[in-house]
Design a protein around this nucleic acid. Structure first.
Length: 473
RNA sequence: GUGGAUUUAGCUCAGUUGGUUAGAGCACGAGGUUGUGGUCCUCGGGGUCGCGGGUUCGAAUCCCGUAAUCCACCCCA
């Protein structure tokens, strides 16, 4: 048989123990924070019918999916995101679900794209959706959850910030000032790229008029303004550009404007003002967003977006469900992990992947039967049948897999494992039916009868396994 | 899908104009005279030099192809 060199497929990752520990750390925080914000976890299939993904994104999406045909001739695709599945699930239960529906999922997703730093073909995505509430409380709850999770990772406003915008307001603002309705698409395209690319190239690519160029330059140079300041500046500019057009400035003082202003104020009241900023350049590609949109970025600007989302009031209906307003966001594990590493925010114990044993058995006897049965006894949980519950949870009992019976070396290994206790089985005491039980941290030891050893150890490890850092030099 | 850079041990990297059996540090393993702590000493296992062709007496080194990684496009749900 020919031997071949296999590598993980392009854009995928192997999770060795130390990698798996990091992934679990990230997923645990996503889950923990979601739950305390009142969201419930859901999941669905990893693949869906190909048509499901065309509903939202059209035919073009197909080239970016991993798709296949099953033996029954059904066209299927690995999920590139969770939202269509979620919409399908909500549509299926329809009116039966209590409102609002607050769901999250931690989904493995697949995209057939060119891999780059922060962007792979297989990744984990935390998906949060708040469905059935058309008030902007939904936006604030989602934003608060997103920010709270990032803080739980040890990141703060020196590491990330949130840029937000409002689609409907943006349309109003643009059409009332300098963009004709047929140029809205081009305007979105330019706003999205205004800070990332050469402006002149963008303008000529999009065939901008001189007037448009002047306005875009103006917007690009007045970034970092609050919503109110930016709006005032635009109105002033509009007025100074010619005779003030009352109908248009009136449009700017519309109901949407006061809604958006109120939203900005509420963010401040909720302590999110410092890290959230109104930003006209946050557009977020696809068309299904109907209102508020936001994006979380690396403050130092090195990485891709950390998270993004917004309001999509038509989506559930598009999937055949009731007409329900919804807000949601997604956060991937790839950029987040890069950022956590760059800022040195991953706890050392996680990186070491060090689950410390409760007890380490040092066997200096020729015969291994006593050590082995001791280990299996300690690891086993003791089930109380009468009360239908676990009486004593099993302990993490470790031992050496080396052949040496040199007690010094074995204790060295026990200490390196970070175990709290060590049992020393050695000929002199063993012949008298005794073993030594050593507290590795305090370097104290006692002789214990073999018969009561398990009970003694259980008593000294009551809390069950703990995740902690091994003692350092 | 299109361009550019990169690929040598588990990791980080040396390797001269093409010339014996491809090296180092870290990591890993064993031992250090029969019983107590991460040090130290000695020794060791590991590499089809990404993969496949070609040129040459001889290729890690030069040429072609190919895969993966990173970067820039496309796109970003």
């Amino acid at each position: 048989m020919a031997t071949e060199n296999f590598q993980a497929p392009k854009g995928t990752r192997d999770f060795y123990p130390e990698d798996m520990a990091v992934r679990r750390y990230i997923e645990d925080i996503w889950r923990r924070v979601s739950v305390r914000h009142g969201f419930q976890e859901v999941d669905g299939p990893t693949f869906e019918s190909l048509d499901l993904y065309k509903v939202k994104s059209g035919e073009e999406i197909v080239s970016q999916l991993f798709s296949f045909t099953d033996r029954g001739g059904r066209d299927l695709a690995l999920r590139p995101e969770f939202t269509p599945t979620l919409a399908r699930m909500v549509a299926q239960r329809g009116a039966g679900l209590p409102r609002p529906i607050k769901w999250f999922s931690i989904a493995r997703c697949y995209r057939a794209e060119q891999p780059q730093k922060g962007r792979l073909r297989e990744f984990m995505q935390w998906n949060v959706d708040y469905i059935g509430d058309t008030s902007d409380r939904a936006e604030r709850e989602c934003l608060a959850l997103c920010v709270d999770a990032l803080r739980e990772f040890g990141l703060d406003d020196a590491d990330f910030h949130v840029g937000w915008n409002h689609r409907e307001w943006l349309n109003r603002l643009l059409t009332s000032t300098f963009v004709s309705p047929d140029r809205l698409g081009a305007a979105y395209y330019i706003l999205d790229r205004l800070h990332k690319y050469d402006r002149k190239a963008l303008y000529s690519e999009q065939k901008c008029s001189d007037g448009e160029r002047e306005w875009f330059d103006f917007i690009a140079d007045t970034k970092n303004q609050s919503l109110a300041e930016l709006t005032d500046l635009l109105i002033q500019k509009k007025s100074s550009g010619g005779a003030p057009e009352r109908s248009q400035t009136a449009a700017l003082s519309s109901e949407i404007y006061s809604t958006v202003r109120e939203f900005e104020k509420r963010l401040k009241d909720n302590g999110l003002g410092a890290m959230c900023r109104f930003d006209l350049s946050i557009v977020r590609g696809l068309a299904y967003y109907t209102g508020f949109v936001f994006e979380v970025s690396d403050r130092q600007g090195e990485n891709r977006a950390i998270a993004g989302g917004g309001r999509y009031d038509n989506l559930i209906k598009m999937f055949g469900g009731p007409s329900l307003g919804a807000v949601g966001f997604g956060m991937g594990d790839v950029v987040l992990e890069i950022l956590l590493r760059q800022r040195n925010k991953l706890p050392g114990a996680i990186l070491d992947n060090h689950r410390n044993p409760d007890v380490f058995i040092v066997n200096a006897l020729e015969d291994t039967t006593c050590a082995e049965s001791l280990i299996f006894q300690l690891r086993r949980s003791q089930w109380d049948a009468a009360r239908a519950r676990i009486e004593h949870p099993g302990l993490y009992a470790a031992c050496s897999y080396r052949s040496t019976r040199n007690i010094g070396k074995l204790l060295q290994e026990a200490a390196a494992s970070g175990a709290k206790l060590a049992v020393i089985l050695a000929p002199a005491e063993f012949q008298q039916g005794l073993a030594k039980l050593k507290n590795l941290a305090e370097r104290t030891e006692r002789e214990i009868p073999l018969a009561s050893l398990v009970a003694e150890i259980r008593q000294r490890c009551p809390a069950g396994p703990a995740l902690s850092r091994p003692p350092s030099g």
